[in-house]
Design a protein around this nucleic acid. Sequence first.
DNA 1: GTTTATAATAAGGTTATACTTATAATAAAC
DNA 2: GTTTATTATAAGTATAACCTTATTATAAAC
Lengths: 304, 304
Amino acid sequence: MLHLTLRQLKVFESVARHLSYSRAADELHLTQPAVSMQIKQLEDNISLPLFEHLGKRIYLTEAGRELYQYSRAISQQLADMEVALDELKGMERGKLNISVVTTANYFAPHLLAKFCQRFRGVTVSLNVSNRETVLKQLTDNLIDLAIMGQPPENLDIDSESFMENPLVVVAPPNHPLCQEHNIPVKRLANETFLVRESGSGTRSAMERFFAAHKININKGMETDTTEAIKQAVQAGMGLGIMSQHTAELELETGRLKILEVQGFPIIRYWHVVNRKNKRLSSVANAFREFLLKEAAKLMDESKN
Amino acid sequence: MLHLTLRQLKVFESVARHLSYSRAADELHLTQPAVSMQIKQLEDNISLPLFEHLGKRIYLTEAGRELYQYSRAISQQLADMEVALDELKGMERGKLNISVVTTANYFAPHLLAKFCQRFRGVTVSLNVSNRETVLKQLTDNLIDLAIMGQPPENLDIDSESFMENPLVVVAPPNHPLCQEHNIPVKRLANETFLVRESGSGTRSAMERFFAAHKININKGMETDTTEAIKQAVQAGMGLGIMSQHTAELELETGRLKILEVQGFPIIRYWHVVNRKNKRLSSVANAFREFLLKEAAKLMDESKN
DNA sequence: GTTTATAATAAGGTTATACTTATAATAAAC
DNA sequence: GTTTATTATAAGTATAACCTTATTATAAAC
């Protein structure tokens, strides 16, 4: 087991470069005996002579040449490491691990793209999962941040809202209610609603809304993706309630219409969430700030 | 300027591997506070936290992950280095820098081949030059060993003879003296001799011999290569005196004949030479021993 | 020979390193 | 709540790391 020190390697490199103990001592602001000692210790450590002494000149031995190569390589690694760590400090580089719930997938990539555009060198790992999985990833500390609708009441979680999440009623373009304005909520009582699985934030918001208005609605097909609901609504199987963000495309192309029901859109909020006490990386922190300050504005702009 | 130690990296690696200070302490046969300290120092050095502490669990930070990569790379370098140095020690590997005078080129490669065959992993750099250049390389410490005929009287040089170097008189096969035996030296007085340049070891040995026998010979063409002399002798331009080793091929194929002159062959010796006080590498030393102990025998064998 | 340049060696001292033990703090598990 | 598992902190210590100055040894240059 050899116990060499980085100091020894550093001194050795200097001597090997100058082929002189005295020059090395000058360079390192040491006395010559100090250099002699370091080299001696290094030679003792590896049990091989590193220099040959012929007259006043010294030469590298075969072992010395070999060691020099490795020593240089290690120095390079250390230098690279220093740069890498400095970059991390300065946020010139870094990795953002983030998970978003499925519905957020309709706008999160857009925001991430903007963020990456601003902070070159930041790499992002985006995971899209259902609410349950996202929460597990949070508690397992697998991710820095999460974006979701309703934050859990769990005390181990910090969350903050950063953008409105308007829930709208969508219908196929040929639906009779599409022509009407200020549709009373009561009118929805006759309609069939396609709903997300229970436990979904959208689903519970919807149920709370109708409960508040004392309305019983028909629940049609129950699916676990918003995508399926959009398809089903287009096919005329019923109405849907969903985050307006998730339906931008279909609304724009006219495949779906928003019904102007009184009390809608239900304004909920997107939240950025992290495990409590988690020390956010500078990148994660920057993204969190970015969301809080600019997400709403950016999403608004992109609509126009 | 960051002053981290290999110890810190080693401890860090262990903690990163176990994701536990206590497990790392066990592995390293330390107490847990000792580990805490090393990590703390490391974190102070790089001014970045390496671990996150969430509850009783710890996790690597981004910086920690980054550092781990570099740390592992450095450890690998060190391990590789250790192996390389061990190989050097054990002569499993190594480089032999050797120069030989031109005339030795007729047998030196053969010996080197045998040597390399025995010590796999040894690489050889063989340089063939005239005596003067070889000596310069020796004093400049560019080579480990040299092979030459007459070693210089220089006190800075260690030399030892390892093999006979018989100088013979060669003639073209149709030369009248070829049929005779025990030719008296006097008979050569009428012959023309093709000679090497003055300063050559062969040339001076020849001159000493004829001077001792008080014979004046005719000197024909003077060249700086033995090869040219062999060609000239075959062409009938005169006789030659040269190391028998350099003419093996021509003798075997009958293109040249050895004249059985009294007092011949003149026995001189091949010497292995190194700069005084030079600490020979294990490979160089092994080759030197190899020459002293086995070269003569091997050359003898190869003749048959 | 003397001078000059270089490295080795010896002696000594300060500091920092790398631990230890003991105890406190924290959070998870029960 | 109590217990258990973990890390942090504090205080103390032996030692080795690292350097200095002073001197010696060596060989090259003059």
